[in-house]
Design a protein around this nucleic acid. Structure first.
Lengths: 153, 153
DNA sequence: CGTATTTTATTTGTATGCAAACGAATAGTG
DNA sequence: CACTATTCGTTTGCATACAAATAAAATACG
């Protein structure tokens, strides 16, 4: 019976000591926090704008004119996703598209006057959404949270 | 010209001093952080399980047998969403359904042996996903982040 | 110059995520 | 008991989100 000292433990379950609880994992918490933010956004913003539409709109105002894929990169959306978002913004008349004379592949995007007005109209609400989302936190905690999330992006 | 002292500022833009930058708002950061986690999850987990499927599976193991909508509440999914997730898990043979003899509306869910095996098979990977997601943070920062996110959920 | 690679945009398929509407069953109330 | 409200599950519609495949154009390179 030599060598049984370490071999006798058979199929001991948890590689780590503690039990696994999904709702304590960071992924679960991130999904939930994002859900709450999206809900606040939907409730406070007018014009039925979504979070991604708002991101595309405001980022476009910042960097226009620009190509569709580049706007996607700047707003953390892949090519397929940003296309859908832009299509809906174009359908609303908030964004205008034009071919790039210097690059036959590119689709150049810019804001329309309506798009500018939509941003102007909802900017205060957007700031309120951020405030409401962070309402349970102190100013120091808000800084902390932003700093930590930025580190894991 | 009385009363012009306060009325002369016309259309002054920013209600708040600083310019609005979407990519500095908490909502944008939460969406991005969630994206990174989902990407890590997809890359590290086997069996093509998604984050929500994994949540439903492990939470079901914890509280089974239970109704579909209750499982949804426990995993932060509304009725329409949890239905789709459960349907796919049933199609895979990970979850079994049965009518509730005491309540004609309820659909009782439980894990199958295959469902249990799938959890067992992926538990280490799931822990790795959490670790990798939090890799840029120190242990103290991880605690901080979890605490702060929990406060805004 | 011509070929290989990369970039840009598009399309399809799958999977959340929520609002809204619905029918069926249950619970609560007078 | 009858009426109302609530709950449960389902379905539809819309909007992300990404993988994978494709086509067209531009770039890199031998």
């Amino acid at each position: 019976m030599a060598g049984d000292q370490t071999g006798a433990r058979k199929t001991r379950r948890p590689k780590q000591a503690g039990a696994y609880r999904v709702d304590q994992q960071i992924g679960f918490l991130l999904r939930q926090a994002n859900q709450r933010h999206v809900a606040l956004f939907a409730g406070l913003m007018g014009d039925k704008l979504t979070t991604t539409q708002w991101s595309a709109l405001t980022k476009l105002q910042e960097i226009q004119p620009t190509s569709q894929n580049f706007l996607g990169r700047e707003t953390a959306m892949d090519a397929a996703t940003i296309k859908g978002v832009v299509d809906r913004l174009v359908a609303r008349g908030y964004v205008a598209t034009a071919p790039d004379p210097e690059d036959g592949r590119r689709l150049i995007l810019s804001l329309t006057a309506d798009g500018d007005a939509a941003i102007e109209r909802n900017l205060d609400a957007a700031r309120t959404v951020t405030d409401e989302t962070l309402a349970p936190l102190t100013p120091e905690e808000r800084e902390q949270l932003a700093r930590l999330i930025r580190k894991i992006c």
